Amino acid sequence: MSKRVLILTGDGAEVLEVYYPMYRLKEEGFDAVIAAPQQKMLHTVCHDFVEGWDTYTEKPAHLLPADIAFADVDPAAYDALIIPGGRAPEFIRNDPDLPRILKHFLDADKPIGSICHGAQVFLALRNRSSLEGRSMTAYSACKLEVESLGATYADETLHVDGRLVSGHAWPDLPGFMREFLSLLRHPADRTLSPSLS
């Protein structure tokens, strides 16, 4: 039976950070399931950097159909979790079903991939002890969120802590997916790949 990976996202997701993992998972023969607050057509965005701006710009990108609503997700039916960035995390973290989903993956020690602003969703957890003492990276503007979770912010743009893979932004997707897929294929391996050590 093919492994199933849940991708938590919503409107305003960074287009590359949701499409790239989805297609890589499918290419490897895994089931990629897009979950959102509602089962509907999602609007992704493209974040890019423009000279003279202190932060990124945002433009509309591709449409993306959500396969399932958060309320209908049975997290035990999935082997791993990916949380793309963009603006979706700041919105979906308010969904009442999100903590239940996150808690399952953390408690079961299943592989979790979080990239860019994806770290913001962990703020939905009432009990954040599962992230205390851990380390992760995220887009630099999310450093305060990572630290407020009790985790250490890793300065490198790609970081692995046990079964938690984190990336800074979409340029880090090749390494991010390499490490995530390694954990998915070899669940007992909890160490940083030789290419990152």
Rank of each mutant, 00 (worst) to 15 (best):
P21Q: 11
F105H: 03
P84C: 07
L125C: 06
R93Q: 07
G175S: 13
H186I: 10
F30M: 09
V73E: 01
M1V: 13
D109G: 13
I82T: 10
G113V: 05
S114V: 11
L184T: 06
F176R: 05
P194A: 07
V146L: 08
E58N: 02
L106V: 00
R4K: 13
D72N: 03
I112N: 04
F176M: 00
H62W: 11
H186R: 13
L144W: 11
V160C: 12
F70Q: 01
L16I: 11
I92F: 02
L25W: 03
M22T: 13
D109Q: 15
T191R: 14
R24F: 09
D161N: 11
L25N: 05
V146T: 03
A138R: 01
A169C: 14
C46N: 05
P99M: 09
V50E: 15
Q38F: 08
S166P: 05
A119P: 08
A80D: 05
G118D: 05
E28K: 10
A61V: 04
F49N: 12
A35L: 06
A151W: 03
T55V: 10
S148M: 06
L158K: 11
Y23G: 06
R93T: 00
A154P: 12
T157R: 15
A77W: 04
D74K: 09
K143I: 09
L106I: 01
V5H: 07
T152C: 14
K3A: 11
G150W: 04
L125I: 04
S148W: 06
S195E: 15
G86F: 00
V165M: 12
A188G: 12
D31Q: 13
L125R: 02
A151D: 06
L98Y: 02
E179G: 09
W170V: 02
L158I: 13
E17D: 10
P65K: 02
L196S: 13
E51H: 12
A66T: 00
H186A: 15
R128M: 04
V5Y: 01
R4Q: 04
L42F: 01
L102D: 11
D97Q: 13
K59P: 06
A36F: 04
P75Y: 01
Y139E: 07
H47K: 04
V165I: 15
D172N: 15
R178D: 08
R178G: 11
S195C: 13
R190Y: 08
E90C: 00
K3D: 05
A124M: 05
S148K: 00
A108L: 12
V18M: 12
T57E: 10
C142I: 14
G118C: 11
A80G: 14
M41C: 03
N94M: 08
S130F: 03
D67F: 07
T137S: 12
A77S: 07
C116V: 12
S148F: 09
E58W: 04
P65N: 04
V15E: 05
N94L: 02
N94F: 01
L102A: 08
P174R: 08
P89L: 03
Q38L: 10
V73M: 00
A69W: 09
L25G: 06
I92M: 00
Y56E: 13
C46D: 10
L164W: 06
A169Y: 14
M1G: 11
P174L: 03
T57S: 14
L192M: 15
H168T: 14
F49K: 15
V160Y: 11
T44E: 01
M177W: 09
